[in-house]
């Protein structure tokens, strides 16, 4: 592997300074499951790795006073999956994180690295977007926050500016009675990167004609994870079998996939229809209203 320096940053200030000083040649380093592969393949040539795993709070999951849940950027996928509050309040996120790669990899892969890497196939993203999660960013100008939906700007592109770091992800309380389902299509049953995925969240809502409101987020079918607002609207109106099929078609219409080594665009689009329908049917069967 090409040579680089490695530093374990101890404070946020030190990390920001190192990242700024190296003018883009220094990279935040978390679980390294994306980074080292891209270096090995010659796509990246960083001069310095700034390990952010030991920064205060980066490995912690905390319930906040406002009832939000804060997940440190360097919390691993396995740590997310087994956390009591995630399991009880945000099971859709647990399901998504559990679907990443293998057990070994999930001991290293962090949730922050997953969204900072900004792959359209980042499996944690659709669930985070369903829950309305926000990315907490630290930079030379202090702290700011953006929704995870807006954090993704394009393939491999995030809202982070030079010298900025993701410190945590914060998730608002889920809607009362919410039920979620994450469905992922890979080339193998378990453990592969998503050919496409869909996260569905439904919750009882007496203002909705169908009795429930919905969030549908699609992964790996556009440059970023995307919501399917038309499908959400149709489901709020009608969740009869015909209504679900119409919503599933609307979700497929929202998808803008490409042909690549994992699947053709046409196949992905049709699988959006099928997986959205299955996800909605699953949620509907579990919703109580």
């Amino acid at each position: 592997m090409q040579a680089f320096d490695y530093v374990k940053a101890k404070t946020l200030e030190e990390a920001s300074a190192l990242l700024a000083e190296h003018n883009g040649d220094a990279r935040p380093f978390a679980g390294a499951t994306d980074l080292l592969i891209r270096i090995e393949r010659g796509f990246l040539h960083p001069a310095k790795m700034v390990d952010i795993k030991n920064l205060p709070g980066f490995r912690a999951i905390n319930a906040l006073d406002n009832d939000w849940l804060r997940i440190g950027a360097a919390v691993t996928m396995n740590e997310v999956v087994i956390h009591r509050d995630v399991e009880s309040r945000y099971p859709l996120l647990a399901e998504a994180c559990q679907s990443v790669a293998s057990y070994q990899l999930r001991n290293r892969a962090t949730i922050g690295g997953n969204i900072c890497n900004a792959s359209p196939a980042a499996d944690s993203a659709p669930a985070l977007i369903c829950y309305g999660a926000e990315a907490i960013i630290h930079g030379p100008q202090g702290e700011r926050r953006v929704t995870v939906e807006d954090f993704f700007q394009g393939v491999g592109q995030t809202a982070l500016e030079r010298g900025e770091l993701l410190t945590a992800i914060e998730i608002p309380p889920p809607p009362d009675g919410a039920v979620g389902r994450f469905l992922k299509l890979g080339r193998t049953t378990v453990g592969d990167i998503s050919v496409m995925n869909v996260a569905v969240l439904g919750w009882p809502d007496e203002n909705a004609a169908s009795g429930a409101s919905w969030r549908i987020v699609l992964g790996s079918v556009a440059p970023t994870p995307i919501r399917a607002p038309q499908a959400e609207k149709l489901l709020a109106g009608d969740t009869s079998p015909a209504g679900i099929e119409a919503a599933a078609r609307a979700a497929a219409d929202t998808a803008r996939p490409i042909d690549d080594i994992r699947a053709s665009a046409a196949y992905r689009t049709d699988m959006v229809r099928v997986y959205t329908r299955r996800g909605v049917e699953h949620v509907l069967a579990e919703l109580n209203y």
Binding site: Y6, G31, A32, T33, L36, I37, E40, M49, N78, A101, S102, Y103, Q104, L105, N107, R108
Partner: peptide, 25 residues
């Protein structure tokens, strides 16, 4: 060397990891 095959799996503080994707430091 890419975290796919698991032939390099070791326990790091008791947890299995792909040692090809961990730095010695």
């Amino acid at each position: 060397s890419e975290g796919e095959c698991g032939a390099c799996t070791v326990l790091f503080d008791g947890k299995p990891v792909n040692s090809c994707l961990v730095l010695g430091a």
